[in-house]
């Protein structure tokens, strides 16, 4: 099922990218980026395990990197360093909290994280 959905995501991104006729966009990177973004989103929505959510986030993050290649955006050096540091720390923190959740509730399932509601 997932294979079918992800294949259709990739085909959909191809079609979507073809409708955008912008000379500033490198099409092949753009297709890869879009499909990575949607695949990551799909992973986060459909899976239950917390570690898979983090993997979905990493897929999105990779998609963003490819997207920055696609649009040919270059930030100043200092800005790049800041962005790199931020992403590094955020992934590190996500990892730390995955471990903490694992310590507290053994099985890492998001269904158990649903006590906060109104």
């Amino acid at each position: 099922m997932s294979v079918v959905i992800i294949t259709s995501i990739i085909i959909g991104s191809f079609l979507l990218a073809n409708t955008i006729g912008d000379p500033h966009v490198r099409k092949i990177f753009f297709v890869t980026a879009l499909s990575a973004l949607f695949t990551g989103m799909y992973f986060i929505i459909s899976r239950k395990k917390i570690i898979t959510h983090v993997m979905g986030f990493l897929i999105i993050e990779n998609g963003v990197f490819v997207l920055s290649l696609a649009v040919g955006a270059e930030m100043p050096f200092l800005v790049n360093i800041g962005i790199l540091l931020d992403i590094f720390v955020s992934v590190l923190l996500l990892g730390v909290f995955v471990n903490k959740i694992g310590d507290m509730i053994g099985e890492q399932d998001v269904d158990q994280l649903s006590s906060l509601k109104d």
Partner: peptide, 11 residues
């Protein structure tokens, strides 16, 4: 347990 849930969702 509650705060870790809140933290995880927020983060």
């Amino acid at each position: 347990l509650h705060t870790i849930e809140g933290t995880w969702k927020y983060l």
